[in-house]
Design a protein around this nucleic acid. Sequence first.
RNA 1: GCCCCCAUGGUGUAGCGGCUAGCACGCGAGGUUUUCAACCUCGUAGUACGGGUUCGACUCCCGUUGGGGGUACCA
Length: 451
Amino acid sequence: MPDPLRVRFAPSPTGALHIGGARTALYNWLLARGRDGTLLLRIEDTDRERSTPENVEQILDALRWLGLDWDEGPVFQSDSAERHREALSQLLDAGHAYRSTATADDVRAFKDEHGAERGFRGEAEDEGAVRLRVPEEGSTVVHDVIRGDTTFAHEHLDDPVIARADGSVLYNFAVAVDDLDAGITHVVRGEDHLSNAPKQLLVFEALDAPPPLYAHLPLLHGPDGKKLSKRHGAASVQELRDAGYLAESVRNYLALLGAGFDPERDRFSTAELADRFRLERVSRSPAVFDERKLRTFNGRDLRELPIDDLVARLEAFTGREGLRPAVEIAQDKLQTLADFWPLCGFFFDGPADDPEAFARVLGAEGARDALADAREALAGTEPFDVERVEAALRGVVERRGAKPKEVFQPVRVAIAGTTVSPGIFESVALLGRDETLRRIDSALTRAPARH
RNA sequence: GCCCCCAUGGUGUAGCGGCUAGCACGCGAGGUUUUCAACCUCGUAGUACGGGUUCGACUCCCGUUGGGGGUACCA
């Protein structure tokens, strides 16, 4: 029997859940859910400034939106101050750590003297910050599930500061103690933590405790190869949500970004993802987050959503109600939830204001006449349903010997105000005869007469 | 500067010593078409470079170059 998994994810509480962090959270989630493990949510808050209740709530909210739940937590590192102090004096007493007043300048001076590649070693003093004593000889090797062994020679490692002079502990010490106490078996985090791993391993060793398994994920980059940031558009899952992406699409896309799933497929249910996820399969090289591809995935998923579901999401997204009829005729044209209102808002709030489109389409040769003919045909259409509307409009096309678009576009611009809308017959039928005629009349009044 | 990681088309990836280097997104052309999408066809483009090892390297080793991360009494 394998030991039960205890996995933890620990976003930093800065308020925004960054996309890279979201992927890390997702992989932790898939790992735990796929192997019946326990998932612990920890907030890395040794730096008190960041973990304001508002920031934490934003993170939790983003996690929930993504559909990631956890079994225990959130727990805060700052809640374990007593235990941290205890572990600290344990190391001090055993000689694995010492106090030192050495500053960053002292460390620099040390390297000037001994060489830049030499790790700093301080002298034990009665006061000052607490530094962990790194062995002179040998090395610490990180056995990483994803990247294999990475060896860190002790001679290159500085004696890391693990607690401030005031006794408050620092990250590398606190996580190690917390992971130990929480019985964490798997630590899955970003590659930016790889160089922290030997420090934490050294803490485990000093505490004479077995370390968890580590897996460091490659980082996510923007299209320019640089670290993903707001410059690249959305950089946090909150922004993705606001941009109208579906949580399940984001999940699916993020999961595919480096997890080594079947390359012949690009769609997996969340259950499948959890079932197939293998830490060993995760890529070692960084990936570029491509929002266009996410858009494509999103559009595909959105188009297949049951209509009731889509309507509910759109009403929540736009804050408007009674959207269903419009959603029915627009679903195929949406890529994100945010696409809906620009496309269909005219049904509810009147024609959009697009003078350029109006002038171009209704100013074209014969456009005004075509629109007048359409008005006449529509005025006599009964009942006013999609079928009859289509017959009426096509009749106009035929009588005028025009191309379809020479009639349809003027009508479209008259009712929508722009050149883009759902299908013209569906749109006209949905708007109803009275409103359609009203808008056509209004357009006719504004349109320049040209024959 | 020093420590560490990474390297298949524009992007995400498959490959695990012998392949016509596969799939998807994008992009291009065509088809369909009432706009925008969607959809169908076809097409485009890749193993960073240099040395080895081997009968044989995208696959293994070394170096170079390039990219990234770390280097706090931050997390």
